[in-house]
Structure formats: structure tokens, C-alpha cells
Design a protein around this nucleic acid. Structure first.
Lengths: 161, 161
DNA sequence: AGGCTGACTTAGGTTAAGCAAAGTCAGCTA
DNA sequence: TAGCTGACTTTGCTTAACCTAAGTCAGCCT
């Protein structure tokens, strides 16, 4: 899958983007809260109930998601009700949607109920089913075994030996 | 982002494919082990060292990954060395690569070091950079805000009220 | 046969993530 | 102004995910 593997021990993974992303969204309840936000949930109680977590956990995770800039908290008011805050996905948060779609599609394939998946994602414009796929800048579809790993500008190498 | 939100409380999320996937790969060390497997790491010690986890944790997670069918354990022998086992990605495991790519790309954008990402993914055939994108069966690129959520065959509804 | 090495396991302890149950508090509605 | 409701917070506890340090064990090499 890579031809730089021979060199692999010369790399340091202290600047791994996967690890850094997991530092932000690396736990179950955080990702499920983002799932809910992407489905349109906005209110505190709904988040807790729909994700199936307790209120203290929901409060802590939502607070962290706001602090990390994935959700934005803003006041709103339903007619005849008092003002309150809602949580909505920021652009930064919305850019995690491909992660959610990829997770969903793996689960649909490998871990679905006998009845099949509970939800189907469609392209709003044409109604066709949506998938997460790998594609290169040259426009080709890329399979997992067609990836080459190259050093990037931020790659830290071991100080010789 | 969805027009079924109005009905959202009529759904039960007990059959959510995202949650089911997270039941399998929902913790940091598991995903980082899969990162390593996708980069070509095969030996126990290398997994532990490159992910940065202790041996007991590496042993437990690798065992679970084999039990879940994401990694396959098979004997191999380097010339002049004794036989030992290596861990390689199964097809089931390789299908999580889009998740890893999507996580990496979010981290490259939102959490990278000043120097930039440590690794660049290229299409083996043409050398162009690879991304995880959303695409519909009609061939259109899909943005996160162009998704419609529809009930699937496995959707459980609340037993009325 | 004896030692080395890679691949684990065992023991003991810490931190983070979770829960349930109960309390607080602000601001409409009546 | 009193009460209700949504949105949290506080308390006290359990479980899961880690760690370090040390021990085990199989099999080629000499």
C-alpha cells in the first residue's frame, strides 16, 4: 500500500493529522453528537435523548464542541417561548460530514441489522444515493490499495541514529 | 440538511450504522492501529511503537481487531529467523480506509502543524493527491449541505404514542 | 543445550468517560 | 408574582482505557 514503508521507522508520528483529528472527535459521544447536528438536531435535550447519553455528558461534550469551533451556539426564540440557545454546525464541523458518511457506509456494509440500514442518504438535487469515495486530483477513482504515501512538508524525521 | 427532521423523534437510533461502526472502531488506539496497518505495518512491536501505545493495549486491541475480522493474523518467516505472526488488513478492514482518509484530511485542514501535514496521499497510478469526497450514484459531487436523509429499510419507528 | 529475541501476559495503579438522581436558575405564561 | 419548562450543574459512583514494570514462552542460532 506504500512504497515508503522501508523508511517508516525514520518517521515520527507526532504530527499525524489522524491523531490530531481524533484528539478533537475521538470519542463515541462526540461523533454521535455531530451525527445529530448533521441531521438537524439543535436543542440540548434532543441531543442527549437522540444520542442516548446523559445530560452531564451531553453538556460537557457540547461545550467542548463549541470551544473547538465545530458547533456554534446562538440564541433563538420560538414564538411564545422564551429565548434559548441552539447548537448548529459550523463550516469546520460540517467538514467532518465525510467522516460520518464513511463510518455510516462501513456500518451499512458490515454491521447492519438484518432489515438493512436505518437511513439512506440522497443527493438533494437528484435523489441518487450518496457515498464517500476516494478520488485523486486527476479525477480517477482510487481504491484503498492504490494509495501511495509520500512525505509531506510537516514530516518529522528521527535525528539520525 | 434534512427534510425529515420534523419526524426525527419518531425514529429510534438503535440501528444506526454509525454507532455500530463505532462499536468496532470507536476508540483512538483501534483507529491508529488501522492507520498503521494501512501504512503497511505488520509486526506486533512496530504497531505498539508506531502508534505510541503500550504492549498490553496493543495486544488487546489487535486481538479484538482479528476477532472482528478487520485484521488477519498469519504466520510468516524471514530468512534465518523463526516463524512468527503478522497482522494484515482484510478486505473488511481495508474498507475503513475512506474513514481514515477523511479523518486525515480534516486534520490537514483544521489541526495541522505550522509546517503542514506530515503525509501526502497520492494515487499510485498518476501521482495526484487523493481526497475523500461525497458523490452520488448519479455521478455528482455532493456537498455536506446537499444531503437528504431518507428512511431506510431497517428504520425502527416509535410504537406510536 | 543454552541463550537471545520477538511476542506477548500479568499485576497493580491512574485517568477519563460514563451513569443516575437531584439541584439550580432564568425567563415566559398565566 | 408564582409556577413551569428547558437547560443545564452537582454529587457520588462505576467502568473502560490507558500506563509502567516485570514475567513468560517458543523456537531458531551457536
Amino acid at each position: 500500500m506504500t512504497d515508503l514503508l522501508a523508511d517508516r521507522d525514520g518517521w515520527l508520528m507526532t504530527n499525524c493529522s489522524i491523531a490530531r483529528t481524533l484528539d478533537v472527535v475521538g470519542n463515541r459521544s462526540t461523533l454521535l453528537l455531530l451525527r445529530e447536528a448533521s441531521l438537524g438536531t439543535r436543542r440540548f435535550d434532543d441531543f442527549a435523548a437522540r444520542v442516548g447519553i446523559s445530560e452531564p455528558v451531553a453538556a460537557a461534550r457540547l461545550k467542548q464542541l463549541v470551544a473547538d469551533g465545530l458547533l456554534e451556539r446562538r440564541p433563538y426564540q420560538e414564538p411564545g417561548k422564551r429565548t434559548r440557545d441552539e447548537y448548529v454546525l459550523t463550516d469546520k464541523g460540517a467538514q467532518l460530514v465525510p467522516v460520518l458518511v464513511a463510518l455510516r457506509q462501513w456500518g451499512d456494509t458490515w454491521a447492519a441489522d438484518d432489515a438493512g440500514p436505518s437511513v439512506r442518504l440522497e443527493h438533494h438535487d437528484c435523489g441518487a444515493e450518496v457515498h464517500a469515495v476516494l478520488r485523486c486530483a486527476g479525477g480517477h477513482d482510487v481504491e484503498p490499495d492504490e494509495l501511495d504515501v509520500r512525505p509531506g512538508p510537516g514530516l518529522l524525521r528521527v535525528d539520525s541514529e
